[in-house]
Design a protein around this nucleic acid. Structure first.
Lengths: 353, 353
DNA sequence: CCCGTTTGTCGAATCGATTCGACTGAGTGG
DNA sequence: CCACTCAGTCGAATCGATTCGACAAACGGG
């Protein structure tokens, strides 16, 4: 393994000189710089991360804590993981993926052994114990999803606005009897932000548009969902539109619609809120996009900004270039509330009759 | 930040003694051990990973190189990432997620800066340049997916056996006219192992069962897929079963089947090969399972076993406990070819008439 | 009672990169 | 021609944990 010493010897200089060439933090004559550069290239030298970290007290790694509800894997989380990693790389950070089923224990281990400089917590719950761990250890972090009590920076999609927009646009297309398939019952019971805010958005838009919006609580069991949906579609007068927040069971849901003898979008307009993998090819339905990449970029940025300067006092980011986040929570922590946007084909009007 | 020195002072011993208490590599009197343990607990001490790594030349981190076909995200890869991380943790390893669109450059950077002890390459292609990078740098690694030329340990699902099994079981249920929806055209063109082996399996089973197996090449564009499927379903005599390897477009596919006026499974039996997220609730169709967790466990193990002893000569695994992998490739590298298994409901026989 | 062994602990060196103060030689002004 | 500045480079200390050899005290056998 080649070290800075090997490079120094080959270039006929001291190790410190090599270091200065690399960092540019002191003036080096052009001749020396060239000689050192040649030695570096010939030996394929790259500084050891562990040695740098020991000296600087900075790892340039973010810990990404993925949610591990036992036995459940949410496809969207994989997407977030990849996008957060991309965003971190832009700032020169790598990402350590944490999947410990004991989220608290894992976070403690990583923070105390200083494997990372900050943590990004995914799928944050109401009063999430992981937030308390970060506070207790004084470890920087940022949240995907939020909890108004946490004094940590966060990013979240404005689910209330998203569902409200979907309902409003559906009403604007002429629909008066609208079904809203909310998040699954257990998500509402767990007081997940997206579940509660989605319901709020539907209610708000219902009032605003004076449309008849009926909520169907979804369920993780596709059979239960299908039954509830069939019942709701059997009510007269028949609803003409279905706004869906609980996307993941979409195939079964469309199946149930077909089983009820309805064609999409002729008999029933279906509007999606959120995101499915592009590769699934669900591009033919109008939807409210969940800008996963945008959220990931924002949360990576917040986490990195929360990292203090290292031992030798160099900050990791140019703070001034950060687009000023809205800051209105009681805690005063910076955050980004991501706004929804319509995508896909236009919403079809209800068929006459 | 508390260090080993702080612990030593508080316990009234030398730092080396604290280290020996932690590692157990020298005999320590019970009194001293207790005093040190108390100091550790009171200070919440945990050794700094970077210092350990510097000394031992071991990071206890695996680099996981996710595929980044620009603009494409495959849901299954997120699943692999999480399962590999789980498996690595069992052996005391953490996982660094790499998503660089320049897979080769990213791997080089991580390997040369010694951010990890070994790499796991996902979605390995025929003559994958990343394999060459590992060889050139002498960096240990293991592959998810394989290429017979690579002299690296690998794990893969036996796709040939999986598709052959699906076709055989379908034929055994009485079907004589079977459609096989293979991987997408561009995957075959890119000579992806799973695509080629799947086709081989279908051909083999066709010969064995003497059934009429017709191959429909899939396509990433759902509209193209739907058109091809409709055409194939319009041929007389009508096929009674459809074996699907290209799962991700399943919703559009089922839609196309419904549009052709066929009911599943009454008019057309659909058999899946591979894996979709459980949460999608596609449990009502017979399928060949892709044991993602089993593959991930195996590949993590192979990567860790490929790591040599650290500077002070302690190996990271008890080698003898590794279940002997089949080793028959020309290269002689260990590998695990994961065998498929039927799951879901039994395959319905063709409806009479 | 003395010398060899065992037990438990300590001090120093080491891993690789960075950084600060010090030093050398060239250039400059008086 | 001497003193002074300044550019460019070097050596040593440092980060935190581990490990080896050394060493003191306790112990046992002859």
């Amino acid at each position: 393994m080649t070290t800075i010493k090997d490079v120094a010897e080959r270039a006929g200089v001291a190790p410190s000189t090599v270091s200065y060439v690399l960092s540019g933090s002191r003036k080096i004559s052009e001749d020396t710089r060239r000689a050192v550069q040649v030695a570096i290239d010939e030996l394929g030298y790259h500084p050891r991360a562990s040695a740098r970290t020991l000296r600087s007290a900075r790892t340039r790694v973010l810990a990404l804590a993925a949610p591990r509800v036992p036995g459940a894997y949410r496809a969207i989380d994989g997407r977030f993981a990849i996008d957060v990693t991309d965003a971190a790389r832009v700032h020169g950070y790598d990402v350590l993926l944490m999947t410990d089923s004991d989220g608290v224990g894992g976070l403690r281990r990583v923070a105390r052994s200083r494997l990372a400089d900050a943590a990004v917590l995914m799928a944050v719950e109401d009063r999430d114990p992981r937030v308390e761990v970060l506070r207790e250890l004084g470890f920087p972090g940022a949240l995907l999803g939020h909890d108004d009590h946490a004094a940590l920076p966060w990013t979240d999609l404005d689910w209330e606005a998203a569902v409200a927009l979907a309902v409003r646009e559906t009403a604007a297309a002429g629909h008066r009897r609208i079904l809203f398939l909310s998040s699954a019952e257990h998500e509402v019971a767990a007081r997940r932000g997206y579940a509660l805010h989605g319901l709020d958005g539907a209610r708000r838009a219902a009032v605003e548009t004076a449309a008849d919006v009926r909520v169907i609580p979804s369920h993780r069991d596709p059979d239960v969902l299908a039954r509830r949906l069939s019942e709701a579609l059997a009510v007269r007068p028949v609803p003409t539109a279905l706004v869906v927040q609980h996307l993941i069971l979409l195939p079964r849901l469309l199946d149930a619609v077909a089983a009820a003898g309805l064609r999409v979008p002729h008999d029933l307009t279906v509007v999606l809120v959120g995101s499915l993998p592009d590769e699934m090819g669900i591009r033919h339905l109008p939807r409210i996009d969940l800008p996963v990449a945008q959220m990931s970029t924002a949360v990576a940025r917040l986490a990195i900004d929360a990292i203090g300067p290292g031992r030798d006092g160099r900050s990791s980011t140019s703070r001034e270039s950060l687009a000023a986040p809205v800051s209105s929570t009681p805690s005063g922590a910076p955050h980004h509330l991501i706004q929804p946007r319509m995508a896909g084909p236009v919403i079809a009007p209800p068929s006459p009759g």
